[in-house]
Design a protein around this nucleic acid. Structure first.
Lengths: 252, 252
DNA sequence: GGCGGTCGTTCAGTCACAATGAACAGACAC
DNA sequence: GTGTCTGTTCATTGTGACTGAACGACCGCC
């Protein structure tokens, strides 16, 4: 079960934290049952986490992840120098388009949404800042994959699979590679109802001077409002934003 | 050294994470030196954290806290049902006042800023979403302290102290209690250059139906722009916002 | 108001395993 | 080539993480 050179107790603690997030707070017994770990062990971990200020216990003896992670989150985002600039551009894209605009980066083979702005007409989606998803079925995800080294892409597909989200999700490796090739040529990635039926998106990667990809920006909306000519319009807007970001990031 | 019923390995791991945040990324050796823990031990923890997707290693073998904490952060904030409403009100306060508006809650005896919005004229401060500080020298902090149970307040002062930030910071326990009493009567807390010289603020607590305090909202700006009458103006605005929040939170 | 059935918490024993230091390998400057 | 930084591996060992059973607090129910 346990690999070498790793600390199992750390695994346990983060399993507890993950469960607290998923259960939206829980008590000792519920955690013990869910994780199949004795109550006393769970209790020790919870006590440690609480004493160190990472979780809280409410008046009903329910434990919750604490706000200290908000601090960690801030510092994680701060590592991206372009973050503030990207935020500004994404906000503008949302305002101009009226739809939802977002910024996503890749980490451990998953896409993580780091900024999201709802325009005046934006639809409701489960997407939030911090949301993690596989890369193969989103506009931003494919935009990123297209510009990662080939071996990284294979590694990621191996690790994360090509699970279908809708009937339009690309689940064939060859098909995906063909589309990535096309994205490399055109510099644009689309999401044609591959994540949620009725939802389309257009995304463009943000690259460093050396050509490596940092992340991607996209605009997302319902098929009813996002026809071909509208998508083209949005694409132009996004490309302008990415241009601004890429140019300004070289000077810093 | 080690308490009973706690897991030291967990302490170590979070010490590593904390150091990674403070150092803005670091390698094995630097962490080992800083934490006075052998390299191999640090390495084991880093490997575990990385395999589980909590930290990343860049191309220069520097470890950084990962974006997965952004996800945790989101779920921590989501626990506050009033969060979205507060966010909207704070944004509006910042727009209307032109200054910085913010929302802070208490956790483990510290204030944690959960939302911050810069108005058009807002000044630069080190305050960010996730920022943690002691409670005794801020408007929001005192607003919260005033409506916590007396024994909690004593506990917090005992644990966190009354460190001076400027020459105006209240460091005397009796003086602080007197001011808290006044805040309880008026429902308003002020920060008169107690955190940063030249910076003043006005804050109001947000309470639940049962009278317990959830957090506080404030507007912060430079002394030059924030005279008595201006502060009164802002106070009225904040009170209106808090009113909206408190009324709407009872119906949910 | 007594009585199961929860819950969280405590505690001492034990053996897995976290911590360790020394050795190794790779990068880099000079 | 040489020296000095890195990060990494690995066998050893002694400690402390894990464990189950017992405890006590709480709550609803009959």
């Amino acid at each position: 079960m346990s690999n070498k050179n790793v600390v199992d107790a750390v695994r346990t603690t983060f399993a507890v934290l993950k469960a607290l997030v998923e259960l939206d707070g829980a008590g000792v017994t519920r955690l013990a049952n869910r994780l199949q770990i004795p109550k006393s062990t769970i209790h020790n971990h919870l006590t440690t986490l609480r004493e160190d200020g990472w979780i809280v216990k409410d008046r009903h003896d329910q434990y919750h992840v604490g706000f200290r992670f908000v601090d960690v989150s801030y510092h994680a985002k701060r590592r991206l120098r372009i973050y503030d600039m990207v935020k500004r551009e994404v906000n503008e894209l949302a305002e101009e388009s009226g739809e939802m605009a977002l910024f996503t980066v890749e980490e451990h083979g998953m896409g993580v949404c780091l900024h999201r702005k709802l325009g005046p007409n934006a639809i409701e989606t489960p997407l939030y800042v911090g949301y993690r998803s596989t890369l193969h079925h989103t506009a931003v995800g494919k935009a990123i994959l297209a510009f990662l080294p080939e071996e990284r892409v294979e590694e990621i597909i191996e690790r994360r699979g090509l699970e279908p989200e809708t009937e339009h999700t690309i689940t064939d490796r060859g098909e995906l590679y063909a589309e990535l090739e096309e994205i490399r040529e055109t510099g644009v990635a689309y999401n044609h109802q591959e994540t949620i039926t009725g939802l389309v998106g257009v995304g463009v990667p943000i690259k460093r001077q050396n050509g490596s990809v940092v992340g991607a920006i996209s605009i997302i909306g319902p098929t009813s409002r996002m026809g071909t000519e509208r998508l083209d319009e949005y694409l132009t807007m996004i490309q302008r934003s990415v241009n601004v970001i890429e140019i300004n990031s070289t000077t810093v």
